[in-house]
Design a protein around this nucleic acid. Structure first.
Lengths: 165, 165
DNA sequence: GGTGAAAGCTAATAGGG
DNA sequence: CCCTATTAGCTTTCACC
């Protein structure tokens, strides 16, 4: 068992540190320390542990629909046999940037990034050729309405209402 | 028109800088400068511009399936009328962390994060109650196989082959 | 847009509770 | 697992190209 697999219980301080870094990944440890009520060294240790444990990463993320970039799509996959084997194979494709195993009418969701439109059918064909893939469904990205980086960190507070019109 | 909307053409140097920061968002500018062949000050300016233009953010991202976190699902939505209005409404829900407008058999993909399993049906109900939503399909996340942060930055190089078994 | 150098701050380390 | 203190290194700002 590597350190990456070990469970790490998150207390409120670690959550607060994560929130700080979700706002700005380069925020100085000293400023985070003041915000969460710890010393600078303690914050750095916690960040180190969180990253080592695989709980968090600090990285650059780009706007997927920026003109300088590329065409993107979600490919839903139905499988026969072991879903995990299929998911692993898809995850190994360099054009695939995200693979999730799901329950529902699709077994795997694979997010695909291409350099241009022409490449997409090719990537989809490659996905369909994978052993265990029975069918696919492609959802081309037309617009992004929201992209938070709080993936995995739930909204705290009362359940939301549907905003009035 | 705000600066965020302005187009920003990406040259190879900016791409290289983004790649560096996708590996480690806290990598010192001095090290990035050596890697991409610019001065430290120039790198910092470029990063600033990329962030100001909305091309890139440097943030903490968490493992959505870590035990310390929560239940996550993708909710596919079919709509009538203006998809964008629906997407905007969904994006305003705090439990929704990602909203993409797509072409295909689903019009919108909304990624949802809940504190626990009980909350999920509630959030889905709230989505179904949105004006213009005709039906939804929920894909509960069971496992994550891959999560890169190269979203939007396509793989460079020859098209991949399906890995051999 | 790019450079280079000085000044101020931040990060990493070591030592101790 | 947290703190303080020190040193090395990073970031920032500026004048200049």
């Amino acid at each position: 068992m590597t350190i990456r697999d070990r469970q790490y219980a998150l207390d409120d301080v670690s959550r607060a540190i994560i929130e700080q870094l979700q706002e700005d990944g380069r925020r100085p440890y000293a400023r985070i320390a003041t915000a969460v009520g710890l010393s600078e060294a303690a914050v750095r240790q916690r960040v180190q542990r969180l990253v080592d444990a695989g709980v968090m990463q600090i990285v650059a993320v780009t706007d997927p629909l920026h003109p300088g970039f590329s065409r993107q799509a979600m490919v839903g996959v139905r499988t026969s046999g072991d879903v995990r084997a299929v998911a692993d194979t898809l995850a190994a494709l360099p054009e695939v940037d995200d693979v999730v195993i799901t329950s529902g009418s699709l077994d795997v969701l694979a997010e695909v990034v291409c350099e241009d439109d022409d490449q997409l059918p090719d990537v989809v064909a490659r996905i369909r050729a994978v052993e265990g893939v029975t069918s696919t469904e492609t959802f081309l990205y037309l617009g992004l309405r929201r992209q938070t980086y709080a993936r995995g960190t739930p909204h705290r507070g009362p359940l939301s209402a549907v905003p009035e019109e």
